[in-house]
Amino acid sequence: MNNNCYCGNSLPFSDCCEIYIKGDKAAPTAEALMRSRYSAYAVHAIDYLLKTTHISQRKYHSKKDIEQWAVTNQWLKLEVIKATESTVEFKAYFLDATLQSQIHHEKSTFKLQNGNWFYVDGKFY
Rank of each mutant, 00 (worst) to 15 (best):
V120N: 07
V120K: 07
K64C: 10
L11G: 02
G23A: 07
Q113A: 12
K59A: 10
I19A: 03
V43C: 15
D65Q: 11
T29L: 08
T72P: 02
Q113K: 09
I46E: 03
C5I: 05
S86Y: 01
T87H: 12
N4I: 10
K111T: 13
A42F: 01
V43N: 09
C17H: 01
Q68R: 15
I21H: 06
T53G: 03
N114V: 03
H104L: 15
K77R: 15
S10V: 10
I55K: 10
S108A: 13
V80W: 05
K64M: 09
W75A: 11
E31L: 02
L50Y: 10
T29K: 10
K59C: 06
V120D: 04
K91E: 15
L33F: 01
D65L: 06
A40N: 07
K25D: 08
K91N: 11
T29I: 02
Q102H: 10
F110G: 01
F94K: 07
A26L: 11
A97Y: 09
H105N: 10
A70S: 14
L76W: 06
A26P: 09
A97Q: 14
S101Y: 08
S39N: 12
K123S: 10
K123C: 11
G8A: 12
V71D: 02
Q102L: 08
D65W: 00
T52S: 13
E31N: 03
A70K: 04
Q102V: 11
L49D: 10
L76S: 14
K91M: 11
S14C: 06
S10M: 09
I19H: 01
V43G: 00
A30H: 06
F94L: 14
L99Y: 13
N9V: 14
Y6D: 02
F13G: 06
T29Y: 05
D65M: 09
A45L: 05
W69Y: 14
E106M: 04
E89Q: 15
T87F: 04
K77S: 13
T109R: 15
A92E: 06
H61E: 05
Q102M: 12
N114W: 00
E89Y: 08
K51L: 11
F124D: 08
A26C: 10
R35W: 00
R35K: 14
D47L: 01
A70Y: 09
I55A: 09
E106C: 09
A42T: 12
L99W: 08
S101Q: 12
Q68E: 14
N4E: 08
D15E: 15
V88C: 02
K63G: 05
F118E: 02
W75Q: 03
R37D: 07
Y60R: 12
G122N: 07
N73F: 11
Q100V: 13
F124M: 12
F118S: 06
F110W: 01
L95W: 07
I46F: 01
H44A: 13
L99F: 15
L76T: 05
Y60Q: 13
I81S: 14
G122L: 04
Q113N: 12
E67T: 11
T52I: 04
A30G: 08
C17P: 01
Q113W: 07
A27P: 07
